[in-house]
Design a protein around this nucleic acid. Structure first.
Lengths: 134, 134
DNA sequence: ATGCAACCTGGAGTCCGCTCCAGGTCAAGC
DNA sequence: GCTTGACCTGGAGCGGACTCCAGGTTGCAT
């Protein structure tokens, strides 16, 4: 059963050393095993958990919610609750995507409009074209 | 030429009164017209600008960048720079979407896995099923 | 004329999610 | 055995983006 040093765990998970400690303190990650001298030794399971936590964070789950999920994971009989929490989150992610798509479209429109301005300005220097202020 | 009170501007733009003032102070929004007594009067152009600023913010453009865009908009001869800035941002948004899609998939996989667990647990109570810790 | 809500300003405070620090311990190579 | 780098802890600090506050004006309705 291979173990990983904090530095390795950080490199693999993409979290900083400080963040790893922070997550453990916050109860987001269960207490990590220690060496005789008190140094952390991350198991593969820990690494897996960290990977998923990363996924949750990158999709915008707030720390508070992560803490809740962490708490649920400390009790085997909470699968249903976890599913509920993750489903809720998945819905939030879906909404986020929709929002992003819509705004992306708007952004593209504005860009097209600007490009038009640019083209017009290049061909004929029309005096007093309406230019939005911001 | 209709003007809007701060309260109206806030309602329409979706920003809070404080945020409107904050954006103006930061030079994100150009100085808004004032009544004789010093009260702000938002023009339709202001409202339009605010709408687009909202789009930029919701797609994650940082304040610093907004400030830059605001500065560019104060000078008519900066269309090219604005296009550059917005194109850069559009690329960032694209990346963000890709990331989100990927993580969404991962989330769904986890959910499916959990649902499988749930189904298994319901039919036969298998002793010692591997349950991920987080 | 007066009451009252909406507005003004400058500056301080808040929340989130880390990140850094000081001062000390552990572990591995030479 | 000693050096050197990785690690430990508790707690303070930070950056971003607002948000709130106090104490004072403005302006519309009555």
């Amino acid at each position: 059963m291979t173990m990983y040093s904090p530095a390795e765990a950080a490199a693999i998970s993409g979290f900083s050393l400080d963040t790893l400690r922070y997550y453990e303190r916050e109860g987001i990650l269960p207490p990590v095993a220690r060496s005789a001298g008190g140094h952390r030794q991350y198991s593969e399971a820990d690494l897996g958990a960290l990977g998923f936590l990363r996924c949750l964070r990158e999709t915008g789950m707030p720390i508070e919610r992560l803490r809740r999920y962490g708490a649920l994971c400390r009790d085997d009989s909470t699968i249903a609750e976890r599913v509920a929490l993750l489903e809720e989150h998945a819905a939030a992610v879906e909404a986020q995507m929709a929002e992003l798509r819509a705004q992306q479209e708007r952004l593209d429109e504005k860009l097209d409009w600007y490009r038009g301005q640019l083209a017009t300005a290049a061909s004929a220097v029309s005096p007093q074209t309406t230019v939005p202020r911001a």
